[in-house]
Amino acid sequence: MKRFINLFKQDTRVIIRSGLHYAVIFVSVMFIILINFVIPESLEVKSNEFFYDGTQGKILEPFLLAGGVETDSIFSNYDDFIGALEENGDSIGIQLEGSAENARFTIFSQNTESIKNINLEEAVLESILENIRGTVGPPNYRVENLREEAPPIPFNKNLIPVFLTYEVVALGFLLIAVMIFQEKAEGSIHAYRVSSSGTAIYILSKVAIFTLIAVLYGVITTVSTAGFNIDYAVLLLLMILASIFMTLLGLLVSIFFKNISEFLFVTFGVLLIMQLPAISYINPTFAPGFIKWIPMYPVLFGLREALFSTGKQNYLFPYLITLIAGIVIIFAACYFAVRKRLMRSGL
């Protein structure tokens, strides 16, 4: 234990000397300002739908306006409508001609769309027409919610789990690697080899310092942006485990490279893969199987549940099992790799 504490103190001194804490404080303050004062609670996403109402009596326009469509997205002149489509490469256009009883829609697409999405668009348009006609029958379905409807998460607060996952938790991935390269360059790893402390203490000390930084970093940021009314026990548990996992992963990968320049390219690749679950986070209907296997997936969604509880039960256990299993495997791999490549070889 004494050896561990001594090495931990030594690693802490290296971190403080490098000024890393200033960068962490700066990024944290920036994020707190962004969330609390800059990024709005609801984001007005670019409208990419334009409508041309070419019907007798303009039957579509009042329906769209009542539904909240902006007036500058509805055109009464066909050329202006086509002009708007051409100016906005990511837009789609909807044209309605004829009358309510004999209507013809034209969908102007500019992007590649799947046949399923085209069918969905058609279903929506037919539903709009039935509403205009007033021929909507009684619903032949009922809606059953598994839990009480959760209030929507404000856009700015919804970014907190993303920051915690990809900035706070992932911090150790890069930093442990840099620390290893620096120790190699300075030769302190040679001194450690001849000391009586073992491989496990070497790994644990570094994991402990980066996990501690991540926890402090995460808690300060969370308190300042989300307040106190959240499940801190779950939040801490997930942050600690995820941080240990990412730090060990950084260590394991870095061992196989000579210097930071080589490692930097690999880092961007690994972090890119780790960031794929963010797409599912933004669009939860998109969740292909392979994304769920990426360790950041349970972390991201687990942190969201801890921050903005929807009353989901029994979600934590599978997430924890996944992370703990990952840590055990990666620690074993790290142990053998560090022993072979750092503690024994002449690297």
Binding site: I82, L85, E86, G89, D90, G93, A103, R104, F105, T106, I107, F108, S109, Q110, N111, T112, I118, E122, L125, E126, L129, E130, R133
Partner: peptide, 15 residues
């Protein structure tokens, strides 16, 4: 409920 026609405009990009 209605006749629906699809028209591809532009170069069919996927943004």
């Amino acid at each position: 409920a209605a006749e629906i026609i699809h028209r591809q405009v532009g170069s069919s990009k996927s943004l």
